[in-house]
Amino acid sequence: MSIDSVFVHKMWNDHELSKMVSGGVPYPMLSDGGGKVGSVYGVYDEDAGVETRGRFIIDPDGVIQGFEVLTPPVGRNVNESLRQIQAFQLVRNSKGTEATPSGWKPGKMTLKPGPGLVGKVWEVWKTEMAFD
């Protein structure tokens, strides 16, 4: 979503993005003229008249599980977004019985919070697990 019109979105997709991604962008390219939606989400910069790089992960109940906002010159990390979605999905599927510690990614161990784990995380989770 950006402040550009759907006509500009069409030009950008058809003439540039479709040369990067075969078939073009497969999801809706949303138009937010005036930044009305961006304002509600806190990502519209009135001085510049554009939206900043906000990324929101919304679960099937319509609840925001996470967001990240960057200033324009720095791009996002898609792998990190995917990792977060996988983590939120795991937690949701476990009905909140499991949690993903720092550095978690699919295949790595999760934590099962409960009285028995209090003060014992150091026994099962090691600092180097925070890194790849």
Binding site: M1, S2, I3, D4, V6, H9, K10, N13, G24, P26, Y27, P28, M29, L30, S31, D32, G38, Y41, V43, A48, V50, E51, T52, R53, G54, R55, F56, I57, I58, D59, P60, D61, G62, P72, R76, S81, I85, F88, Q89
Partner: peptide, 27 residues
């Protein structure tokens, strides 16, 4: 929105039941 060669109207609440990634960008 522009989607697959068409202009369409999108409502966020139509996506209830699915995971959604909503991205804003400068332009």
């Amino acid at each position: 929105a522009y989607l697959n060669g068409k202009f369409v109207n999108i409502k966020l609440s139509e996506y209830l039941g699915k995971w959604v990634v909503l991205c804003f960008y400068p332009g």
